[in-house]
Design a protein around this nucleic acid. Structure first.
Lengths: 227, 227
DNA sequence: GGCAGTTTGAAACGAACGTTTGAATAGTGC
DNA sequence: GCACTATTCAAACGTTCGTTTCAAACTGCC
């Protein structure tokens, strides 16, 4: 029943990183949560930084292998023909949502990952870029092939926007409290909602002809009505 | 030319918070950047936490007043008729993008704000919810009126997704490095790109009829091809 | 049972943190 | 010029951090 110390530390760290962030999570909090001695982190991982890397690597490697496997299967089935954009989006983001839905640890991790793309910490971002290199290359190629009429730079931005939407989707009700009470307990509904939104955004008309930013939006602020 | 100590501290803190996060930014870094004495933060603001709040309040109050003013103007012009969803989206997110484009400090702040919605820190999120209450109420009402056929819960999720996309949009090239080299120097192009994506996502077909998550996506992971 | 190697435990390390202190300095009204 | 407030400054405060140390406890093997 009891996992070994190393695994207990990883599990406790994952949860605490999401709740408090990397810096605000101390080794004493982690070892207390894992019911381990303070020195256990440095014994098993060498340093706190190495522990952070291992928390990511443990799940991210599997996640990206899944993505590549799904893409492999889709491309084999297509036999050289371009995939449909929806298939690619669903395989990339669907694997992530599915991981988040599969277990509390998975959801915890995906929330952590979503926040980490925009994390300021240098070494975490470099580590992420490295872990993602193979997946990004394959998916970019698949998308460019599926959407030959969309300029590549345009698509990269849209991919970026999609990652943002997914990040917030998984971060869930905590952030949504700003907007009001909401139910985020059904992962399948979330999956359907997110996919619909992402495909809509991805397939939106190209923005070249949009009006520019209006110069002066406001003449004179009027009295605010009660909400 | 030299601003007073209080303003220099706010400017320096804003930049450092984006670069390193709240916890990793020390008062010694801030006061060094502001060319002020270490004790100046506690003298002018009382505590580090109060400084964080003031960094937000300084710009967020103005930002949300702008949003309300723009919405007031639009609704006055519409004379009771529902606004077009595109107008509402543009006024809410356009004000933010414009603020980010207006000055380096504005962009810095918007990046900070985007990261903060999903920030784990309790007191920061509570503070945000309070600052946003009036704006959220007004914009929700405007959207519900503009999109009477969209279930309110559905819309709240899409609003949430839109916030995620905008957050990543402003966080910009740092996170985008994962996807490859990209140019984020033109705020008007960014504005056009984001709006196009957001409207596409907002107006996407409702997801009720989407297929469910496939149960087993992968039979056997195949050997990965070289990228 | 005794002896390697591995893991845990309690205690301490120096460093850096946010905060406080009290004296020195700058600025203002009279 | 003087009293008074506001601000700056260098130094120190107690706390907590990640890390290290080294002895104790556990493990598998002969």
């Amino acid at each position: 029943m009891e996992a070994d110390t190393r695994s207990r530390i990883l599990d406790a760290a994952e949860i605490l990183f999401v709740e408090h962030g990397f810096d605000a999570t101390t080794l004493r909090m982690i070892t207390a949560g894992a019911q381990a001695n303070l020195a256990a982190v440095n014994y098993h991982f060498g340093s706190k930084e190495a522990l952070v890397e291992e928390v990511f690597r443990r799940r991210l490697t599997w996640l990206n292998e899944q993505r590549l496997a799904v893409l492999d299967a889709l491309e084999a089935e297509a036999a050289g023909a371009p995939l449909k954009p929806r298939q690619i989006v669903e395989s990339f983001f669907g694997v992530a949502i599915r991981m988040a839905a599969a277990s509390p640890g998975g959801r915890t991790f995906m929330r952590l990952l979503g926040r980490t793309y925009t994390e300021p910490s240098e070494f975490v971002r470099n580590f992420l870029a490295e872990e993602y290199a193979a997946v990004v290359a394959r998916y970019k190629a698949a998308f460019f092939k599926a959407l030959p009429d969309v300029p590549q730079e345009e698509f990269l931005w849209r991919f970026h926007f999609m990652m943002g939407a997914m990040s917030y989707a998984i971060s869930g009700a905590d952030a949504l409290r700003i907007l009001g009470p909401i139910d985020d307990s059904d992962p399948e509904a979330l999956y359907a909602r997110l996919m619909s939104f992402l495909i809509g955004g991805l397939r939106a008309p190209l923005p070249e002809l949009l009006p520019r930013i209006q110069a002066k939006p406001v003449r004179k602020p009027r009295a605010r009505r009660a909400a």
